[in-house]
Design a protein around this nucleic acid. Sequence first.
DNA 1: GAAGATACGCGACATGCTGTAGCGGAATGC
DNA 2: GCATTCCGCTACAGCATGTCGCGTATCTTC
Lengths: 200, 200
Amino acid sequence: MENLAIAHAPVAHRLGRPRCDATRKAVLLAAYDLLAEGGLSRFTIEGVAARSGVARTTIYRWWPTKGALAMEGFLAAINADLARPQSDSVVADMQALMRSFARLLRGEVGRIIRCIIASGQSDPETIDAFVTGYVTPRRAEVRAILERGIASGELRADLDVEMVNYSLFGPAYLRMLLNEGVDEAWMDRLSGFVLAGCLA
Amino acid sequence: MENLAIAHAPVAHRLGRPRCDATRKAVLLAAYDLLAEGGLSRFTIEGVAARSGVARTTIYRWWPTKGALAMEGFLAAINADLARPQSDSVVADMQALMRSFARLLRGEVGRIIRCIIASGQSDPETIDAFVTGYVTPRRAEVRAILERGIASGELRADLDVEMVNYSLFGPAYLRMLLNEGVDEAWMDRLSGFVLAGCLA
DNA sequence: GAAGATACGCGACATGCTGTAGCGGAATGC
DNA sequence: GCATTCCGCTACAGCATGTCGCGTATCTTC
């Protein structure tokens, strides 16, 4: 809930009344809740205002678009709930990570990610924030695991790490967005398929 | 423009004035145009009504949701513009197909697909229609190519065809949705990576 | 302590889209 | 001719958006 120096940073203001942090947090929490409960359709700035008890005009003052608000509410709420196992086998670690990602996509967070991607299609800045604040860090984690595997000789030395990343996450996102379901069995099948081609 | 017995079929009406097909086509064309021009944000039923010259109430009578209208406008307009090469090499064929898919995603159709996926996130029926009317047929084409490769011995006999499908299209969709760009060079790299693991 | 600056809540307003309803005219089958 | 259905028109209520003042609260600087 604290990793949010992204926008509206405190800036060590010099003049005037400082921004009320309780208000800001109430807005972000309400945004997250509404997102998690009702999806994109029920997510409105008016709704966030009503739920948070913050004046609607205040929200308009600080967040430029609905998407930006949703994004920040999301980023403010996610705690590192993705498993980060580290065993002898990099393949096993990746499979565990992808299984945990599948659980994530099926739950509350998944619903919010869908909202963000959806509203980002008509608002590039939302997508940028999502990529910067969420996707890129996750990719870095995967990259680290894979490079560990390369270093240990478990994986091919000439492995295209970025493509492995895409081949694992791309299908998962797609299945979620197309309502095809992201269960652990399917995810195992996918990671099995992709990682089989990565072995040394 | 004719493959549309999906909804509102003619039904060989027995009584009353038959539905005006020109009106229906005008609506679908306007829907497609608005989608292609302005994206999801500028796509409204009111806008479609204004552009098509059809009364707004008439549109409400025939299309249940905005998403359904967008979907049908899209499906009514796409002609088979995906390359369907058939050479000696299944790998080359797949690479050509994916390149052509990359071009598609970068163009007008890509923008519309983004709209459909976006509005589908708060409207399951839109996604269903998209999967049924677009995704599934395309998957079948890929499956046919891959099975040809298996039969000819070019590809592994135990290949998980469905996972190849996902590994190729999943990343492409994801890159498009995340505004990362789907250029042919990247697509070649992806298909090269995936198909390398499919060889016999 | 006073002045200036900023944050917040409140009320109001214009705008646009949604979704529904009723009416009248037009086109069809019986 | 008649029932039936389609279509366009007008109207309406509802809701969300985005902006504007205004009054008040809270902070820094002098």
